[in-house]
Design a binder for these strands. Structure first.
Length: 304
DNA sequence: TACTCGTGGCG
DNA sequence: TCGCCAAGAGT
């Protein structure tokens, strides 16, 4: 049975899509990873922190950092009471340290606007620093058990393959992606929240980008991409991202120096990280503009 | 829209 | 080995 085979009426399409969500949820119930932010007693704040850390960073690297973070800053008020530089330092090597700065600003905004409680509606979440279309819905669904399409790269890929028969999700088109996922969600809010995390888990563990484990997939007999013979992606391959030697790389070197020091660092220390003076200047200017670094005369520090 | 923004795991 | 990719957000 395929979705398309049932799509000659709206009613039967509805039945087929609900079967997909139920199948994936059943799979999730026995195959999901035991991640701490998925525990029933995980606080909304701890869920929010996990979602920000997981933006472009793998679970294996996030988990230890998340434990340390939650022990030190169990509520938004705890984080807001410390300087943003401490958040950047604790972020360690998770990457994209602007996320740490925004998470600190997010905690401050939660204290100021929401009396220290993580808001439970998508619009209020969207208004917080560092919380975008994905994270707002993820927090609403996973922390507050609401029914929202939660569309990350995993879900986009699963839907592209199972429903559309494509190898990948192609370019992100947020409104269309939200609609495509919305029709797959059960009406019940708790069931929808479970289906949302189940779709993500399937994309992360089975329906992966490079070597999908279709033999272990609960949707293998239904998947449009599989039934079409798993054709390769047709669009242009995405531009390859290099890293070593880029401005981003030099920024990373400078941030590592600052994280390692409890005291202001002489500018000369940053000159030692990379030979190209022009590139160093660009990197430092960028860090200053982002607010990740403060300059006081010939010294630089993390923001106090 | 397309680009920038870290760091590391993995096939 | 090395290029792809990773629970995106902001501009």
């Amino acid at each position: 049975m395929t979705v398309t085979a049932y799509s000659f009426t709206g009613l039967s399409l509805r039945i087929a899509t609900e079967a997909i969500a139920q199948t994936v949820t059943d799979w999730y119930d026995t195959n999901a990873r035991d991640l701490p932010w998925r525990q029933p007693d995980a606080s909304p704040w701890s869920v929010l922190v996990s979602e920000v850390m997981l933006q472009q960073t793998q679970v294996s690297r996030v988990e230890p950092a998340w434990h340390r973070w939650m022990e030190r800053w169990p509520t938004p008020a705890h984080l807001a009471a410390d300087p943003p530089g401490e958040a950047i330092r604790a972020w360690d090597r998770l990457g994209y340290p602007r996320r740490a700065l925004r998470l600190h600003a997010c905690a401050t905004a939660i204290v100021e606007r929401h009396d220290g409680e993580v808001p439970d509606d998508v619009d209020a979440l969207l208004a917080l620093p560092g919380i975008g279309m994905y994270t707002a819905r993820a927090v609403a669904a996973f922390a507050f058990r609401q029914r929202h399409p939660v569309v990350d790269t995993n879900v986009r890929r699963v839907v592209a393959r199972v429903v559309e028969g494509a190898a990948d999700g192609g370019a992100a088109t947020t409104p269309a992606d939200l609609r495509a996922v919305e029709v797959l969600l059960p009406d019940d809010h708790e069931a929808a929240a479970r289906a949302s995390v189940a779709f993500m888990e399937l994309g992360a563990m089975i329906c992966t980008a490079r070597a999908p484990r279709c033999a272990a997939c609960p949707l293998t007999t239904v998947c449009a991409w599989r039934l079409a013979g798993s054709p390769p992606a047709d669009g242009p391959s995405r531009r390859t991202q290099r890293y070593h030697g880029t401005d981003r790389y030099v920024r990373g070197l400078m941030m590592a120096v600052l994280r390692a020091s409890d005291e202001p660092v002489p500018l000369g220390r940053l000159d030692e990280v990379w030979p190209d003076a022009q590139q160093r200047q660009r990197a430092l200017d960028g860090l200053l503009a982002d607010g990740l670094v403060r300059r006081r005369g010939a010294m630089v520090t993390l923001p106090g």
